[in-house]
Computed example of a mutant assay.
Amino acid sequence: MRRRKKPGAKEKLLTHELHLCKEPEKYKGHWQGYFLEKKPIHVELGTGRGQFITTLAAKHPDINFIGIEIKEEILLKAVEKAVAQGLRNVTFLWYDVNKLDQVFAEGELNRIYINFCDPWPKARMAKRRLTHRNFIEKYKTFMGEQGEIHFKTDNEKLFEFSLNEFAACDLRLKNIIFDLHQSDMKDNTTTEYEDKFAAMGMKIYRCEGRKRN
C-alpha cells in the first residue's frame, strides 16, 4: 500500500535549522565538529516519532545522538519533540539507511540502535532486513573499538534471524532478553511502538552485539 504524504510536512520539516542536518554528506568523518561539544555518538536507524532518541538525549547530555528517518511527516514529529525539550545534543537526518556509507566514516560511531524495524517476513526479502549481515558488516566499519548495536523487536522470527546474523558477523552477543517487560532490566527506554505492543501483552525481544577488538 502506497504511503500518503501529509501536505506541508516537508516544508515544515525543512524550517528546523537546529535539529535537522540537511546535507549530512558534508559531515562524513567530521560529525564531532557538527555538534556543540565532542562526545560519543549514538545513532538510531528508523527513529520514527522520536520518543526513544529524545528520551535518551535528555537522560544523557554526555552523548550526541543522531536519528535517521526517511518518512518526512513522521520525522517532523521527532524533530518537534527535540525542539520542545530544547535538546542540543540530538540532530536528525531525513535519509535512507541504505546510504549510510555516504554520511559516516570508519570508526566514527559508538553505538547504533535498531528498534522495531520492518521484518520483511518473506525469505526472498531477507537482505532488506536491517539486521542482515550485509548491513551489519557496514555498521561495523562505522563503529569504533567496542562499538555496539542494540536491537529490539516484537517479531520472534526476526529476533532469531538477527541473533544468527550478529553471530555470523563476529559480534559478541550479550544481554539477550526474550521478554523485556518481564525481565529485571533497569532503565529501559521505550519507543512508541514498544509501549503499544507491551500494553497488548506482546513480548519484546532485545539483544546487544559488541564489536570485537
Results as ranks from 00 to 15, higher is better:
Asn213Pro: 15
Glu72Pro: 01
Gly209Ile: 09
Trp94Ile: 00
Lys5Tyr: 02
Arg49His: 11
Ile149Trp: 05
Asp101Val: 09
Arg49Ala: 11
Glu156His: 14
Gly107Gln: 02
Asn110Thr: 00
Tyr193Met: 08
Glu192Leu: 05
Ala167Pro: 10
Gln32Ala: 01
Ile112Pro: 03
Glu160His: 13
Glu72Lys: 03
Ile66Met: 03
Leu13Gly: 05
Pro7His: 12
Gln85Ala: 15
Glu23Ile: 04
Tyr193Cys: 10
Ser162Phe: 05
His19Gly: 02
His181Ile: 13
Glu17Ser: 11
Ala57Arg: 05
Thr15Leu: 09
Phe52Thr: 06
Gly46Pro: 02
Ile114Met: 14
Asn155Val: 15
Val43Pro: 01
Gly86Thr: 12
Glu208Lys: 12
Ile66Cys: 02
Asn175Ala: 13
Arg88Asp: 15
Leu20Met: 07
Ala9Asn: 10
Tyr27Ile: 04
Tyr27Arg: 02
Phe166Asn: 08
Asn134Tyr: 04
Glu80Lys: 10
Arg88Ser: 14
Met143His: 02
Thr131Leu: 03
His42Tyr: 15
Trp31Gln: 04
Ile204Val: 15
Pro24Gln: 07
Ser183Glu: 08
Asp170Ile: 09
Asp62Pro: 00
Phe151Val: 08
Ala123Ser: 14
Ala84Val: 08
Arg2Lys: 10
Lys186Ser: 10
Arg129Asp: 04
Asp170Gly: 10
Glu192Thr: 08
Asn155Phe: 13
Gly67Gln: 02
Ile74Glu: 01
Tyr113Pro: 07
Asn98Val: 00
Val97Trp: 00
Asn134Phe: 06
Val97His: 05
Pro121Lys: 11
Glu208Met: 12
Met185Thr: 11
Lys203Glu: 12
Thr91Ser: 01
Asp118Glu: 07
Glu44Asn: 05
Lys127Asp: 10
Gln182Ile: 10
Met125Lys: 12
Asp170Phe: 12
Trp94Leu: 01
Phe142Met: 07
His132Lys: 07
Thr153Gln: 10
Leu93Gly: 00
His42Gly: 07
Cys169Phe: 00
Asn175Pro: 10
Leu75Phe: 03
Val97Asp: 01
Glu17Gly: 03
Ile41His: 03
Val90Cys: 10
Cys21Phe: 01
Ala58Phe: 00
Arg2Ile: 05
Lys59Leu: 11
Gly29Val: 02
Met125Ser: 12
Val103Pro: 01
Phe151Pro: 07
Glu160Ile: 15
Lys10His: 08
Gln146Lys: 12
Leu56Cys: 13
Lys6Arg: 14
Ala167Tyr: 12
